[in-house]
Simulated assay, not measured.
Amino acid sequence: MTDIHPTTTPEEVYLTPAQVALLIPGMMKAALAQLRYRGLGPTYLKPTAKLVLYRRDDVIHWLERSAFTSTREVA
């Protein structure tokens, strides 16, 4: 039996705020901006003064952390 080891890793996927808004139903670019300002949104990158990017995996991870199993749970 041979061991299977991946020889390549998946490339990071970077998204603009507009693409993140399309990825999450009901999300607006302005809401993402507010989440960034308040420090409550997904981790983001700012390689230049005007460019904001998100790693797709970070957005999914942030979204998954908001999962609840009951309406009794505190947000």
Score class of each variant (00 low, 15 high):
Met1Gly: 15
Thr69Trp: 15
Pro17Met: 03
Tyr14Leu: 15
Pro25Val: 03
Met1Lys: 09
Lys50Cys: 08
Leu35Pro: 04
Gly26Lys: 02
Ala21Ile: 04
Leu53Asn: 09
Lys50Ser: 13
His61Arg: 11
Glu73Ala: 05
Pro42His: 08
Arg38Val: 02
Tyr37Trp: 05
Tyr14Gly: 00
Ser70Tyr: 00
Ser66Cys: 10
Ile4Asp: 11
Tyr54Phe: 15
Tyr44Glu: 00
Leu32Asp: 01
Arg38Ser: 09
Leu32Trp: 04
Ile60Asn: 11
Arg55Phe: 15
Asp57Tyr: 06
Val59Gly: 10
Phe68Arg: 13
Lys50Val: 04
Leu63Thr: 13
Thr7Leu: 13
Leu22Glu: 13
Ile4Lys: 09
Thr7Ile: 12
Leu45Ala: 03
Pro25Phe: 12
Ile4Ala: 12
Phe68His: 15
Ala21Tyr: 09
Val20Arg: 00
His5Cys: 10
Tyr37Glu: 08
Leu63Glu: 04
Arg38Glu: 12
Ile60Lys: 13
Tyr54His: 04
Ile60Asp: 06
Leu53Thr: 05
Ile24Asp: 03
Met28Glu: 14
Thr43Tyr: 07
Ile60Val: 15
Ser66Gln: 14
Leu35Asp: 11
Thr48Val: 11
Leu35Ala: 08
Thr69Leu: 14
Gln34Trp: 10
Leu40Gln: 14
Lys46Trp: 02
Gly41Trp: 09
Glu12Cys: 05
Met27Tyr: 06
Ala49Gly: 15
Ser70Gly: 01
Leu15Lys: 01
Gly26Tyr: 02
